[in-house]
Design a protein around this nucleic acid. Sequence first.
DNA 1: AAGTGGTCTAGACCACGTC
DNA 2: ACGTGGTCTAGACCACTTC
Lengths: 239, 239
Amino acid sequence: MPQTPGYRPLYRQVYDILVNRVVQGAWRPGEALPSEQSLAKELGVSQGTVRKVLDALTAEKLLERRQGKGTYIAEHTQERSLFRFFRIARPGGERLKPARTSETVKVRVARSAERAKLDLDRDARVVEITRTRLIDGQPALHEVIVVPVQLFPGIEKRAGLPNTLYSLYQTDYGINIVAAREEVRADLATAVDQRILGVPAGSPILVIDRVALSLQQRKVEWRVSRVKSEGVVYAVTLT
Amino acid sequence: MPQTPGYRPLYRQVYDILVNRVVQGAWRPGEALPSEQSLAKELGVSQGTVRKVLDALTAEKLLERRQGKGTYIAEHTQERSLFRFFRIARPGGERLKPARTSETVKVRVARSAERAKLDLDRDARVVEITRTRLIDGQPALHEVIVVPVQLFPGIEKRAGLPNTLYSLYQTDYGINIVAAREEVRADLATAVDQRILGVPAGSPILVIDRVALSLQQRKVEWRVSRVKSEGVVYAVTLT
DNA sequence: AAGTGGTCTAGACCACGTC
DNA sequence: ACGTGGTCTAGACCACTTC
C-alpha cells in the first residue's frame, strides 16, 4: 500500500508551471527562456530540478537547448514540421517534400465520425480543408483536414494556408502539435483518386489517417491523406 | 573552433563499458545488474554518473528499472516484442496478435538486393524464413525474413521457430533488436497473395519492408511482410 | 530494518558562444 | 571575460520492496 497516495515530485510541479507559461504564450516561438539559474531562483528550487524539467521539455520537442547560448521555444518551422510528421519518402530513404496547391475551405457542423475522432460535442462546428499536394510537380496526394472551429477562429478566412499547417497552429493559435497517431492502410483508387491523382482505376493507394495531439493531449486535427503509391513509401523508424 | 576536439564525457565511457558487458552476456535477460552504488564504486565514478547511463539504457529499452528492487536486463518476451514492433491493428486502435503457422527455412547465398540491405560481403550466406501468420484464425499476412547465417549459426536447424523471432535472437544469439526501419506501401494482390491469403485478384495489399537494427546499429534482419489490408491498419504514433 | 531506485540540493568545473 | 548549458561530485532524504 502506498504510504503517500498524493505524492507528486517537485519537478512535476515545475513542469506544469513551465508548460502553462509556454501554452499561455509567455515566450514566442524562437524566443529564449530565462537561464536555468534565474528560473531556479524564481521558482525556489535548485538548478538541477529546473534542468530536469527543461531536459524533459526538450525531449518533447517543445524547447531547444543550445550550449553556451540558452534555452529556446522550439519553432515549428515549415522544414521542421515536414520532416517530423510527413513520412512520405522514396524507397531506400530519401524523404520527400510536397509542394502545395490551392485549397478549398468550408465551415460546417461536425459529422458524427468527426465528433468521435476529435472528442467534440454535438453541434460543434468544424473547418474542413481540402487540398492536393505535388511531388516532383505531379499531383501525388490529396487530403481532407478537419479541425474544430472553436480552436482556430477565423482560420477559414485566411487565403493561402501554409504548406505545413502546424507552424500556423503554433504561431497564430498557440497550439503546439506534439504527437500524431497515424493509421496506414492500402486501398484501391476511387473515381476521385483517378481524377485528382491521375491514376488508372484499381491502382493501389496508400491511405493515412492521422489524429494530431496538442501538448495537453487534446485531439486537435483529423486528417486523411490519400497517396499515389507508385514510387513512394511511408517511412518510419520504430524504437 | 572547439578547444578540445577529442572531448568525451565520462558518462559516454561508462555507457560503452556497460553496453559491452550486456552485449557479451555478463547478465542474462531478466537478471539484475549490481546496484548503482556498487557500479559507481567499481567504475570509480559517482552514483549520479552511473544513474545517467542506466537511465539512458532504460530509455533505449535495453534495461528496466524497478524502484525498490533493482535494474534488470530487459527481456524481449513474446508479448513485448510483438507489442513493440508488430504494428498491425484494427482501425480505431486495438492491437492485433498474429498466430504463427509452420515456416520453411532455407540457407543460400545472399542475392545482391539482400547484400545491399544488410551490408553483406559478396559470397555471404543467408537464412531465408518464409511463413504465414493468422489473425482470427484466418491467413492475414505472409512474410519473407532474411538474416545472415554468420550471425545466427544453426538457426536453420531449429524446428518450430517462435512467433516472435527477436526473443530467440536475444536469448540464443545475444543480439538485441533495438530499432527497426520500416517502409510501408500499397500494392495489389499477386497470384501468390491470392493463394496464400485467399483474396481476390487486384485486392489491396499492405507491404511492410523492415530492416531491424541491433544495439550496435548493425543491420541484422530484412523482412518483407504482405498483409491483407481488409479490416486492419498499420498503426504508429509519431512524436 | 535494510537495500534499492527516485528526488533534491549545493557546489565545482568544463565546453561553447558572444562580446 | 562573461554567461550559458553540460558534466560530475557528494550527500541527504523519500518511496518502494523485501525480509
